[in-house]
Amino acid sequence: MLKRPSTRRRSTAPEIQLNLVPMLDALVTMISFLMFTMAFLSFTMIESPIPMVSSQENEAKLKEPPLQLTLTIKDSEVTLWSPFDHIQPVSIPNKPEGGIDLLKMHEALVGIKQKFPHENQIAFVPKGGTTYDDIVQILDSVRNFDKTDPPVAVLNEKTGVSEQAKQLFGDVIFANLLGGEE
């Protein structure tokens, strides 16, 4: 049986120690800078252009009147309608406990999108008492697809290939901004 090797070491080389202090200084400076300059709040936005009044000449140039899907918020219901009667008006009553039934409204919008896949614009007519929170929730429901929604195919005119629509009705215009009903 072999003898166990000795654990004793005889070394004359000096022990190397890395000087971490300058690196530590650099790290502390970088962390301070990053914490000072970074934004901890994560904002998002919903963009909406101001409505424009279209001239009669422009309207005459259109071969076919547009869908002009309109979402009107009323005291007890939400109505989806088209001023040119492209769709039957859909009324979605508020939930029994109060508040807009966003789920049913979204389902109705997906149904309309399937019929008019190229349509991206919606005119939004809130009432004066609608809160900003409600407006954001409604616009979220109007603009974005849910994961459970059926895919809507849109033909890309440039490539000639059908693609999945990325947004439901992404272009929202506050229709009663410059006047009109609330």
Binding site: S42, F43, M45, I46, I50, G129, I135, L177
Partner: peptide, 25 residues
Amino acid sequence: RYDTLRKIMYTAGAAQFKIFRLLAM
């Protein structure tokens, strides 16, 4: 409420602002 926001956006429209970005978290 929307009636407050509407006045703000109407005023901005009168001052030739064209696009509004409604911010949220």
